[in-house]
């Protein structure tokens, strides 16, 4: 494939700017296209094409953007594109020993690539600290929000790309949250949680979880409901937070919270794998 530098530069640039991208590769030699590449990002910028027929490229653009907007994180997608009907059909499984060229059209391999996901930790205490450490290892971009500079600083959070120490509500307001943002409220008191939650729900992140006892979290939620915050948004908040791992230490709680987030991202069951499949002897 020629022009690779241009395409990979564009991928690099888009991801650095937080824009998801898709790279399409022709898997068969229909119209002598084998290996031809077409880059699309979520802002509808394109590099290259899969076909000289602009209608085909437009169809693919539409398909990719639709996939990206579903907020389901597709890693790859294999599709067949029929040149008679201009139809895109998803084919879950392919067989490379089949002759692709029997198809009347292209078989395309579509890779979706996403920027790093953000973990926004509100509260730089024990749990927040453990969350930052674990989240960093798992691959999140870490942001810490706490109005106490003694807690929220680079010595304590060297892995953070952002540390916001101003007033909690305006700190969260200054963040750009999206479907790749996971917000965890582990602050030191329900007043702060309330402020953080009020602002977070307006910004539609992928996840909001709030730590606290039933009493503490229900005070916060009741206050927001009385303020008239959209009920559906409040019902989507994860509280009590985490998966029941049984641990108690700050690190164990952090692991439980991250487990919840990973289960949501990958649609995992949270069950023991050995309960899902019996070992064949």
């Amino acid at each position: 494939m020629k022009n690779s530098i241009l395409i990979y530069q564009k991928i690099q640039e888009s991801l650095k700017n937080g824009i998801p991208v898709a790279l399409i590769t022709a898997m068969n030699s229909e119209q002598n296209n084998l290996g031809r590449k077409f880059f699309i990002n979520k802002n509808k910028e394109v590099v290259g094409d899969i076909n000289n027929d602009s209608r085909v490229n437009d169809l693919l653009l539409e398909y990719v953007i639709k996939k990206m907007n579903q907020n389901v994180f597709s890693v790859i997608s294999i599709v067949s594109l029929n040149y008679d009907t201009y139809k895109i059909t998803e084919s879950n499984k392919i067989n490379i020993s089949d002759n692709f060229d029997k198809n009347n059209g292209s078989v395309l391999f579509i890779e979706f690539m996403y920027p790093k996901m953000q973990l926004i930790i509100v509260g730089g205490g024990h749990v927040g600290h453990a969350l930052a450490q674990l989240g960093d290892v798992v691959g999140f971009e870490i942001t810490v929000v706490d109005d106490r500079k003694d807690y929220a600083n680079l010595e304590r959070f060297p892995m953070a790309i952002k540390i916001l120490t101003g007033d909690i509500e305006s700190s969260i307001d200054s963040l750009e949250l999206n479907a790749l943002s996971y917000v965890v409220l582990v602050s030191r008191g329900h007043k702060l949680d309330e402020a953080a939650l009020r602002m977070s729900v307006q910004k539609n992140p992928a996840y909001i979880g709030m730590i606290g006892s039933k009493r503490r979290t229900s005070i916060v939620i009741n206050n927001l409901v009385q303020e008239g915050v959209n009920l559906e948004k409040i019902q989507n908040i994860y509280t009590p937070i985490g998966i029941d791992l049984g641990g108690q230490s700050p690190a164990e709680i952090a692991l439980s919270i991250l487990s919840e987030i990973i289960i949501i991202i990958h649609k995992g069951s949270g069950k023991h794998l050995n309960s899902l499949k019996k070992i064949i002897l």
Partner: peptide, 10 residues
């Protein structure tokens, strides 16, 4: 995580 693209690889 699988859905994160390894920027170092690019």
């Amino acid at each position: 995580m699988q859905i994160n693209t390894d920027n170092n690889f690019i």
